[in-house]
């Protein structure tokens, strides 16, 4: 597969080896970087989950954030994972007052602590483990299983951004897509075959709007 160069945004807030390894397994030439020039020279950009919303927002307040915004404006492929999805929005319950990139309008909410499953069982927060997505979008297969680790989820103002939902007490937005931007709450790098398929789609020539 010729995928060009994949730059993985490294904000210095977490261990990104598993993300890099997942792209290498998919045949990509992947590079971790915090240098805006390096990021902007790549062919595809990946923003993995790292740190908490506050630290992530602070790290993106400077020139890296500008680089990411201009990347997205340029129409080249962007994949956001977990917090890399959440920071595309304006704000988060996790860090009131902190600003996300604001690429999309909407916010990030915390799961309620009194969630119950269909049988009345208490649901725990964080939502940790494998859960299914419901999607009719071409980059996903309906009812695929993905690995999740999170306490917060995105609530876009524009519901047409949502391309996958997952049930945890109630359906929440587990993936969005618009033009060149694809972002998911789950971790494709930890989701075995399903994750490898999604990364393959991202590296391919699929348009995901």
């Amino acid at each position: 597969m010729t995928t060009g160069r994949v730059a993985i945004v490294d904000l210095g807030l977490g261990n990104l080896h598993s993300v890099a390894k997942a792209f290498e397994r998919a045949g990509a030439n992947a590079e971790l970087s915090s240098d805006p020039d390096v990021l902007l020279r790549a062919d595809r950009l990946v923003m993995p989950g790292q740190g908490a919303f506050k630290e992530c927002a602070h790290a993106l307040a400077g020139e890296i954030g500008e680089a990411v915004r201009s990347w997205i404006d340029s129409g080249r492929p962007y994949l956001g994972i977990c917090l890399g999805m959440q920071v595309l929005f304006e704000s988060s319950d996790e860090a009131p007052g902190e600003k996300g990139l604001g690429v999309f309008s909407g916010s990030v909410k915390r799961f309620a602590t009194d969630l119950r499953d269909a049988e009345g069982g208490r649901l725990k927060v964080p939502h940790i483990g494998w859960n299914q997505i419901e999607s009719t979008h071409p980059v996903f297969e309906n009812e695929e299983w993905y690995y999740f680790v999170h306490s917060y989820y995105c609530v876009p103002d524009d519901e047409s951004l949502v391309v996958a939902t997952t049930d945890y007490g109630a359906p929440f937005c587990s993936a969005i897509a618009r033009d060149n931007v694809l972002a998911c709450q789950f971790h494709p790098e930890k989701s075995q075959h399903a994750g490898a398929r999604l990364i393959g789609h991202f590296l391919g020539d699929v348009s995901w709007s």
Binding site: H17, K21, R25, Y147, K190, S191, Q192, G195, A196
Partner: peptide, 8 residues
């Protein structure tokens, strides 16, 4: 292991 196994 982490290089070759795509589960946590």
């Amino acid at each position: 292991t982490a290089s070759t196994v795509a589960v946590p």
